[in-house]
């Protein structure tokens, strides 16, 4: 049944993917900068540029260009980066794990804080923890993520000296672990390089915390609201009337049901998180695809920007797919009707 559900969701994601590819293509055509002029070199005659334009297929009609574009995508051909001189696909693949590791670490941190906070606020309405949750929810969404990142750097690096300099995934004296998953935390554990693990964790802490601060708000808010609803529901009353222990009532009965709207919110949270990721990568010189795109933007190097947008969008569609499947795992109503 799960396989059936996944298949259905995969099919359901196809329109989103098509939309993403079309929009990216249109953005690509609108991007300034003439690839033909670039490939022809600075000294080329207009005639030579025209020839190259023809060779690249840029003189064809828009639908035909779209077909070419699809062909390029199918072959994993994202163009060449001017700044790094490498194929964009290769650059992005090399940098993607850094971004994903950071985003996931931020999300996990946020969940660790937001779920208990939301539950505690809902079980004790009007208490100090409820007020705390309210303040966090409103203040959290007001925080400009690049600004909180800088504040954290100032406090924990400059003033207290607890955190390492905000200079990427590892300090200068540590070398990267052998690539297995591309996630430094996991790879260093797998290869048993615990010093590397500690260094990577130290570098990751502040940027992940910045992302977490920002995404705790919507998650805590949703957890609190949905937990409040579930706690006053009839089936929780039944569970209490049957004398089930407080823990069972709270976790097995209330929380599992309350998680459903929270899982739905995750979609929106990921949208914000992936965007905020770009800013956080800039603040912490994090070598992910966000800072790659920013460098390219500044240098008016557009092939990496296209690759970046497409990658982010595909990543986001994939995450939404995972969220759908997760929802189905929790809620039998979705699973069985599939």
């Amino acid at each position: 049944m799960i396989a059936h559900l996944i298949l259905r969701r995969l099919l359901g994601a196809i329109p989103s993917l098509v939309a993403v590819v079309v929009v990216t293509f249109l953005l690509t055509r609108a991007l300034p900068g003439d690839p033909a002029a670039y490939f022809a070199g600075p000294a080329a005659t207009p005639q030579a540029i025209e020839e190259i334009r023809h060779k690249l297929g840029l003189d064809k009609s828009l639908p035909l260009q779209f077909v070419d574009y699809l062909g390029d995508l199918a072959r994993g051909e994202f163009g060449q980066s001017l700044t790094t001189g490498q194929p964009v696909a290769q650059d992005i693949l090399a940098r993607l794990p850094a971004s994903v590791e950071l985003t996931l670490a931020g999300l996990i941190l946020a969940l660790i804080v937001a779920l208990p906070l939301g539950v505690a606020a809902a079980t004790r309405p009007g208490s100090w923890i409820d007020h705390l949750a309210r303040v966090v929810s409103t203040a959290g969404v007001s925080l400009p993520v690049f600004f909180t990142g800088l504040l954290l750097v100032y406090v924990f690096y400059y003033l207290l000296g607890w955190a390492p300099a905000p200079m990427g995934r590892l300090d200068l004296f540590t070398s990267a672990p052998r690539t297995i998953t591309g996630f430094f935390l996991i790879d260093s554990l797998l290869t048993g390089e615990f010093a590397t693990f500690r260094a990577a964790a130290a570098q990751l802490t502040l940027p992940a915390l910045t992302l977490a601060l920002f995404s705790v708000a919507p998650l805590a808010r949703m957890t609190r609201a949905s937990m409040l609803g579930v706690l006053s529901s009839d089936f929780v009353r039944t569970a209490r009337a049957n004398g089930l222990s407080r823990g069972t009532v709270l976790v097995t009965y209330a929380l599992r049901n309350a998680l459903l709207p929270v899982v739905t919110t995750l979609g929106m949270v990921f949208s914000f998180l992936l965007g905020a990721n770009v800013l956080v990568e800039k603040v912490f010189s994090w070598p992910g695809i966000g800072s790659y795109a920013i460098e390219a933007l500044v240098a008016s190097d557009y092939a990496p920007v296209q690759g970046f947008i497409l990658t982010m969008a595909v990543l986001y569609v994939t995450l939404n797919l995972l969220i759908d499947v997760l929802y189905g795992l929790i809620d039998p109503r979705v699973r069985i009707e599939a």
Binding site: D234, F235, T238, A241, G243, Y253, N257, R333
Partner: peptide, 16 residues
Amino acid sequence: MSMIFQNPRVALNPIR
């Protein structure tokens, strides 16, 4: 001592 309620369809945990 135990209790049964009205609207049994919503008085049971929907996802268990």
